[in-house]
């Protein structure tokens, strides 16, 4: 491969994965261009994490191919950084030691590691916490360290699995802006899993909507908002329009995930019946 060409291209083609009898993902094709920010959105259990884990190298496809820079993925590697939904910092390592971990695995010397980790931590505004243990940090800070740790080894691709799902709205916003800053600075490819529509729009260049299990790609939408993104953009007409379309697509799938198409029509009716029943019980 030509070293001058941009790296970090992800190609998922006809990807399918079965866990024994259950088909988690049936046929997913998507791609992320070098330096692109792409989100995956869909109802719970549709296989978003499964796709991400396959790109990370934790799962081997039972159908189709998963390629990163034209090479089939064979096991995890520091080329593909990952941020998990659950906090995954090593509790026995300080913030700085957590960030140094990947560099240590690469065989980088102690002083060089320290310097690199310090630089990264101060970029993320965490320099004051370098000697803290994860237990002493708030949820937002833990996830911030998680992102810095994943970026420390200079991966081509960053994979994030609902990283901000457990954070409050305010912290979430700050984290999204930080993530965009880091992404723009490092020019790496990002594949981001979320179930938050606004988050997907605010962050992404493109968004894939995944159907209810077994997952397939239902739609692919391009976000027309300019870069750099700013918080005020959520009030623009483009944003509103996109949000409306996504809401509709996801609503269909969420209802399908909970039952079937019939439930989609009778859902409201069932709600009214329930209200009647509760009213009757009160009498």
């Amino acid at each position: 491969m030509n070293s001058a060409s941009p790296r970090g291209r992800i190609d998922v083609a006809g990807f399918g994965l079965r866990f024994g009898q259950t088909t988690a993902v049936s046929d997913i094709s998507l791609h992320v261009k070098p330096g692109e920010f792409v989100s995956l959105i869909g109802p719970s259990g549709c296989g978003k994490s499964t796709v991400l884990n396959a790109v990370a190298g934790f799962l081997t496809p039972t159908a189709g191919r998963v390629l990163v820079d034209s090479e089939p993925v064979r096991g995890p590697s520091a080329d593909r950084g990952m941020v998990f939904q659950q906090y995954s910092l090593f509790p026995w390592k300080t913030v700085r030691e957590n960030v140094e971990f990947g560099l240590k695995m690469q065989g980088m010397g102690k002083s060089e590691r320290l310097a690199t980790a310090r630089t990264l931590l101060s970029v993320a505004g965490l320099h004051a916490f370098e000697n803290h243990y994860p237990e002493q940090l708030s949820g937002g800070m833990k996830q911030r360290v998680g992102i810095v740790r994943a970026l420390a080894t200079g991966p081509r691709v960053l994979l994030l699995d609902e990283p901000f799902g457990a954070l409050d709205a305010q912290t979430r916003m700050i984290m999204q802006e930080l993530l965009l800053d880091l992404w723009e600075g490092l020019k790496i490819s990002v594949l981001f899993v979320t179930h938050d529509i606004d988050e997907a729009i605010f962050l992404s260049d493109r968004i894939y909507v995944v159907t209810a299990a077994p997952g397939r790609i239902k739609a692919e939408l391009t976000v027309p908002l300019p870069r750099p993104r700013a918080a005020g953009m959520s009030e623009t007409a483009d944003f509103h329009h996109l949000r409306g379309r996504l809401l509709e697509l996801i609503r269909e799938e969420s209802l399908r995930a909970m039952g079937n198409e019939v439930a989609a029509q009778s859902g409201r009716r069932a709600g009214l019946d329930l209200a009647d029943a509760i009213g009757a019980a009160r009498l």
Binding site: A56, S88, A150, T153
Partner: peptide, 15 residues
């Protein structure tokens, strides 16, 4: 042991 810690380590290049 939380398996996510092992996965995180492997993602960071740990053998």
């Amino acid at each position: 042991v939380d398996p996510v810690l092992v996965r995180a380590a492997r993602c960071l290049g740990a053998k």
